[in-house]
């Protein structure tokens, strides 16, 4: 049992194809997450029970259910109902890609709702109150004061969720999507060599995850650039100026 380098190189094109599927799927769902999580978080934080309760039930259900079960429900479960099959949305559920996107997105949005909520709650109250006292309309305070600050407080939690989510996409092969894991599995079944394709795929996941981490580290630095320590040379000239 050893790592077969020539097989690894030979299977790179197929694995890249799978990787592209994983990345496309991830970007699709991450965009859905950004679009839907802010309204969901606002609904969850609303004082109106008719908004807060459904949002809470949504979060509890889709956070608590494993993605695997969620995909099975979407792919096998709801197809048994005739009214779903006759509905307008059926092409979406009949398509594996549609199923995978919906299943992953429901789980991701449920997690993101709490990420966004936590970030909004961590913005100090005084800042929003001060803005309102200055006569800035509530809508603008939310959009230009609370949301940008929340982004800064929430970036770490968002990074964890994105990384966890990308790793979680490995499961979509159960609804016949040819993602990176599925391709690696296919090569294993053709060659009876489990280690080579799967370790190569693991390296690819590792690179993607760490690129994402690097990107977030850069974003974090940029968002917090006013906290950055001043470069040594500039500090020295300033001191000289004061003296």
């Amino acid at each position: 049992m050893h790592f077969d380098l020539s097989l690894a190189i030979a299977s790179l094109p197929a694995l890249f194809h799978g990787l592209m599927m994983t990345i496309c799927l991830s970007i699709f769902v991450l965009l859905l997450g950004i679009v839907f999580s802010v309204p969901m978080a606002l609904a969850r934080m609303s004082k109106r029970r008719s908004l807060a309760w459904p949002a809470l039930v949504f979060v509890i259900f889709f956070r608590g259910t494993p993605v695997l079960v969620l995909l099975y429900i979407l792919y096998f479960g709801i197809a048994q109902f005739a009214w779903v099959r006759e509905s307008f949305f059926w092409p979406l559920f009949a398509d594996p890609f549609g199923c995978a996107v919906i299943g992953l997105a429901l789980n991701h949005v449920a997690y993101m709702t709490d990420v966004v909520r936590g970030s909004l709650l961590s913005v100090p109250r005084g800042i929003a109150e001060a803005s309102l006292a200055l006569g800035i309309p509530e809508r603008k305070v939310f959009l230009w004061v609370r949301l940008p600050l929340a982004l800064r407080y929430g970036i770490r939690a968002y990074q964890n969720e994105v990384v966890g989510f990308i790793k979680g996409t490995a499961i979509v092969s159960v609804v016949t999507i040819n993602d990176l894991t599925a391709v690696a599995n296919g090569i294993f079944q053709e060659t009876y060599d489990p280690l080579t394709p799967m370790i190569t795929a693991a390296v690819m996941y590792w690179i993607v995850v760490n690129l994402v981490r690097l990107g977030f580290a850069g974003l974090d630095r940029w968002l917090n650039r006013h906290h950055a320590p001043e470069p040594a040379s500039r500090t020295r000239t300033r001191k000289a100026a004061v003296a």
Partner: peptide
């Protein structure tokens, strides 16, 4: 830690399950 937090659990499970007996034998 870098490997375990950077690779999907499913893939690690597959590697251990399908590759584990070969590695142990070796």
């Amino acid at each position: 830690i870098s490997i375990m937090t950077g690779v999907p659990s499913l893939l690690i499970l597959f590697i251990i399950y399908y590759g584990g007996s070969g590695v142990l034998t070796a």
